[in-house]
């Protein structure tokens, strides 16, 4: 076995560029997923039955089908329906964002249901509407509780974003593939890719642990 260190050093800047794009996709998808997840999670427990059902269908569909298939649906199937090409970047973020939204919704639902019923009763008894009580009282408290599972979800999303390489989007995994196609350095490149992913996920878990600690003391 020979290990070509020079190849690692040469490829690293290119891979880091890819990692930058991975971070960008993940960050934007997380943002989209959080917004979707918050509304779907709240809809999931609202007293409006159609909203509740819609949210349940959304969650079931996105958790019950593979992300890879969802990416194909958005990148290949949707353009046929719309009769218009979908930009790979938009497709990547949309697929990852709405997929993550389903998981975040379940995290939100659990976080909200963990808040004592007395909080909602206190808010309502003061004349606040359900929406106001959710917004000012329940959701801010739920946020604190759900930081650890949200952190796990972000880490999962960062790793799953490697799937968008299949639509030719040049994030970290795709960059690795392209370099290997040129250099045949499978060992060196895949190891480098793995190390970069590991560095990113470790950084997120540290950050989440830090935020959790800070919020606990406040």
């Amino acid at each position: 076995m020979s290990f070509n260190f020079d190849l690692v050093i040469q490829s690293f800047p290119l891979l880091l560029l890819g990692a930058g794009i991975t971070i960008k996709i993940t960050a934007l998808s997380v943002g989209l997923g959080m917004i979707i997840g918050m509304f779907v999670g709240i809809a999931r427990i609202s007293h409006v039955a159609p909203l509740r059902m819609l949210a349940a269908v959304y969650i079931d569909f996105l958790r019950g089908t593979p992300l890879l298939v969802q990416i194909f649906l958005i990148y290949f199937a949707l353009p046929i329906m719309l009769d218009q090409r979908v930009d790979p970047f938009v497709a990547a973020i949309t697929a990852c964002g709405i997929n993550s939204g389903a998981y975040v919704a379940e995290i939100f639902r659990a976080g909200i249901q963990a808040i004592d019923d007395g909080q909602m009763e206190a808010g309502r008894s003061l004349g606040m509407t359900w929406v106001q009580t959710m917004r000012y009282i329940i959701v801010p408290q739920a946020f604190k509780n759900i930081i650890p599972p949200l952190g796990n979800e972000f880490i999962a999303l960062l790793k799953d974003s490697s799937l968008v390489s299949v639509i030719g989007f040049e994030e970290l995994t795709r960059r690795g593939q392209l370099i290997i196609a040129r250099t045949y350095g499978s060992l060196e490149i895949w190891l480098s890719v793995a190390v970069i992913y590991l560095a990113m996920t470790l950084a997120i878990s540290r950050l989440v642990a830090y935020m959790e600690k800070r919020l606990k003391t406040s």
Partner: peptide, 12 residues
Amino acid sequence: GMVFQRFNLFPH
């Protein structure tokens, strides 16, 4: 106005 057995103040 309502006052509860378990206070139900908003802890945050």
